[in-house]
């Protein structure tokens, strides 16, 4: 399987690099990989953004995982919007925000290439329309795409402490799909289970890859099912994405050679990784 691609951003030195990390493959993605990245970089107070292998491909896999430390506790938070898609189509599996800037900085990230902008930059003028996601400190909070909020104020505090005004993330990469018939079959099978989503449909701004438009997408999530949040599916789609058969079929289609045992024991791997940090 291909190594995970992690964009490491050092806010202190205003430098960045993309790291190819085969050792992260067993962690699948999302929260399990995010916690492992936190463990690897814990000395630089990291905020880790991570997605899973299904983001950008299958419906309801619509969230991005954030892992950060708050008052001695490792928190995993999830936000929807368009960020998961933009990370996938940047060709990235995770971003690590390390250290702190000496002055206020805004990140403009295009397909993994980082430009450090000062506080005079206007986030709405950065990136490519239709292919960007904007994460910005505003109205006293950390807001994604001018609408989606993070649960609690944990990340807002982190961003303020790091003097990070936000990030604009643009992704222009595309990935070819060899067996379009099989892909469409799987996609439609999952869409056919829309009634198992544990939230009512609505008319509110929806997350990319999710046609529910629910009232709760604005709030984000804290914690939850480890497999679901390693993918990173919406918590309300837990009934669909906690089904190992479905997950295995989707991963296999995309060329991932995880075994059933690996997926079944992912929660154990998560727990062991958490203990590495303690």
């Amino acid at each position: 399987m291909e190594p995970k691609r992690v964009l490491y951003i050092n806010l202190s030195s205003k430098s960045s690099s993309i790291q190819y990390m085969p050792e992260l493959v067993d962690y699948v993605g999302g929260v399990t990989m995010g916690v492992k990245l936190f463990a690897l970089y814990k000395d630089v107070d990291p905020v880790v953004l991570s997605i899973g292998p299904l983001n950008g491909y299958f419906p309801f896999v619509s969230k991005t995982c954030f892992v950060a430390e708050n008052e001695g506790v490792i928190e995993d938070l999830y936000i929807g919007g368009s960020l998961g898609f933009r990370l996938r189509f940047s060709g990235l599996d995770a971003i690590v925000l390390a250290g702190s800037s000496s002055e206020a900085v805004l990140l403009d990230i295009l397909d993994g290439k980082v430009t450090f902008m000062d506080e005079t930059a206007d986030s709405s003028a950065l990136g490519l329309p239709g292919k960007r996601s904007v994460l910005a400190l505003s109205r006293g909070g950390l807001i994604l795409d001018s609408y989606f909020e993070f649960p609690s104020g944990i990340l807002e505090k982190k961003f303020i402490a790091k003097k990070l005004l936000g990030a604009v993330i643009t992704g222009t990469k595309t990935f070819s799909i060899a067996d379009i018939g099989k892909y469409t079959e799987l996609f439609n099978q999952i869409m056919g289970e829309k009634d198992r989503i544990k939230v009512a449909p609505g008319s509110h701004p929806s997350c990319s890859g999710c046609p529910m438009g629910c009232t709760l997408s604005v709030n984000g999530e804290i914690g939850g099912n480890i497999l679901v949040h390693s993918l990173v599916a919406c918590g309300f789609a837990e009934d669909i994405y906690s089904n190992l058969g479905t997950v295995f079929a989707c991963l296999s289609f995309l060329g991932y050679k995880y075994t059933h045992e690996q997926l079944e024991t992912l929660a154990d791997l998560f727990s062991r990784t958490l203990k590495e940090i303690a």
Binding site: G56, R86, G171, T172, T174, I177, I180, Y183, G209
Partner: peptide
């Protein structure tokens, strides 16, 4: 409401995943 399901369908018909080159933006 910005779900981009239409965009995904366009790209799926073009046998790819991604935002670039979609006939719907």
């Amino acid at each position: 409401f910005g779900c981009e399901m239409c965009l995904m369908e366009c790209q799926r018909q073009m046998k790819k995943a991604g935002l670039e080159g979609s006939y719907i933006r």
